[in-house]
Design a protein around this nucleic acid. Structure first.
Lengths: 327, 327
DNA sequence: TTGTAAGCGTTATCAG
DNA sequence: CTGATAACGCTTACAA
């Protein structure tokens, strides 16, 4: 930890013998500056190792070049991959990102939003799927633009980036139906309110009207625990809304001598690296996760600079990888 | 996105009929203020929904209540879990955390540091294990305190929080040695410079002087690819520095009919949720990952408020979970 | 093309 | 216990 004071724009202007305004112009590359002057200023900046103070800049211009990113859980690989995409694009546009882990908890989300407002971020990316009515309202009222990534605004007021879950889950349902009765096929998804789950359910049921719906928290153990009931209930194929429960279900079957995919089939929907690490490897819908984050962030940059966006609700293409948990 | 101006401290003072200074005093709860006045101010604050502008505050006080967190890869569950610990403690002390994904890349790390300096964060947590000499130097010179989490400063000048890798890897080596010759045991770790790897190597070799060292990138595929060579070279047990390669090695063995643990044993060292999701489940050193992050952040808060810290190099206790990849 | 000067919303130092 | 007032470092009309 070093102890010396940073030079200010004033130091630069003094050394060169020009005004603050001129230095500011060259730093921000706006307004006309004679090339000779520009060079002198640039030289002084280098020599003094001057760096603009972001706070002062923010205060004067009311732009912080910071965005907020609310994420439910850093150890959920789905969100982590979205975050990589967000971060990558943020870097390109020179935004730094302030993290707000929400734990999918309404109170924590509210607190996070308030902090972001206080910090005067220029915009925010929201991830989370148990968004409360209240939170939704706060987001709509927020002083900066908000984009949903891998998440959806049920009111459809806020821009979002996702895959077409209805279509994807319908396709999966159709696939499973080929050699199984509806009653043997189930959708395993988050408990409680979740607009994403609703879409998945809609797609699934449109293909498999007689299918069953089970609720499971989105962690490994929840899936493991649920698996027993699934099998006992006569379910022989599941599609899950998250990857970790799929792994849990798979392992339960294996640990109990139920052959996958012969006796039980599994398809997951996030295709995080997890599903390729199990044996058998899990079949899955694939999502362009990095791109979802990247596109969401790009959309946000447009919103932040008041550019028109043609379609605020973007659906990116998905695919399927059939590995070894399906026949 | 709503469009109304935030009230300022000035609005509050005007409404109550006191000076700015008084309002500031009650907001920051410092200095003496008559209780009656305080109540009036508090009331006005609530009514106006006044919230201090963090930038103005930062400019005036040169404190931002923001910290930087540099992390190599958000999808590496080891770091993700540290990050959760960091975030949790940061919340408690009211710091917001600015993310800087470094990709373990020296240039990106430098850029991240510069951004953090520009943003005037009050401190930073550094994670990364291929820290270049230059970066190390920059960190030592940084204008704010820096704490290493799950990472080590080879020069030992910067505070850090870790487990005792030397001891852990020695213990693991000893375990494996019980029924295998040294020449059949290998350590698989990161390629290139890495002070953490050095510690692991030191511990490993002190127990297994005749052991071999293999290099592997810390992803699944690298482990998978390496496994072939390991087996061909007569290695029959490995300990890995990271979890993903361990999974890769395990799967290679399984895919090729080499029974684990009968014919090949594996121990990993991060105990992320991955290793419990494979079949057989992977034996591992266990680390208090959340706590490493939490303690690092706590340490940083002390440093940021110029408190004395007794021991800047903290080692947290580790354990072992022997699952099904060891005999 | 360049300079002047008024903010931006706080904190903090002095007086009172 | 309270109030003026000068910073903090920069942007941005408005003049020159």
């Amino acid at each position: 930890m070093a102890e010396n004071k940073q030079p200010t724009i004033y130091d630069v202007s003094e050394r060169v013998g020009v005004s603050l305004a001129t230095v500011s112009r060259v730093v921000n590359n706006n307004g006309k500056v004679k090339d000779e002057t520009r060079q002198k200023v640039l030289k002084a900046i280098k020599e003094l190792n001057y760096r603009p103070n972001a706070m002062a800049k923010g205060l004067a211009s009311s732009k912080t070049t910071m965005i907020g990113m609310v994420i439910p859980d850093l150890t959920d690989l789905y969100y982590a991959e979205l975050a990589q995409g967000i971060d990558a694009v943020a870097k390109i546009y020179n935004y730094s990102v302030t993290l707000a882990v929400s734990d999918d908890n309404p109170e924590a989300e509210k607190a996070a939003l308030n902090t972001l407002i206080d910090k005067h971020v220029d915009g925010m990316i929201y991830m989370g799927n148990k968004t409360s009515k209240e939170m939704l309202h706060l987001l709509e009222e927020s002083p900066f633009p908000v984009v949903f990534a891998g998440s959806v605004d049920p009111d459809n007021k806020l821009p979002s980036v996702n895959i077409d879950y209805v279509k994807a889950f319908k396709q999966v349902g159709l696939t499973l139906k080929k050699n199984l009765k509806d009653s043997k096929i189930a959708l395993v998804d988050n408990p409680g309110e979740s607009s994403l789950s609703d879409l998945r359910k809609e797609g699934f049921l449109s293909a498999v009207p007689g299918g069953k719906i089970y609720e499971s928290d989105d962690d490994y153990q929840a899936g493991y625990n649920l698996a027993h009931h699934l099998y006992k209930d006569g379910i022989r194929a599941v599609i899950t809304g998250e990857d970790e429960p799929a792994v849990g279900i798979l392992n339960y079957m294996q640990d109990n001598g139920i052959k996958v995919p012969d006796k039980f089939q599994i398809i997951s929907s996030n295709d995080t690296k997890l599903v390729n690490m199990t044996r058998p490897a899990i079949s899955s819908v694939t999502q362009p996760k990095f791109d979802i984050g990247a596109v969401a962030m790009r959309l946000l940059t447009k919103l932040m600079s008041d550019q028109k966006v043609d379609d605020p609700e973007v659906l990116l293409p998905h695919e399927f990888v059939m590995r070894d948990t399906t026949k």
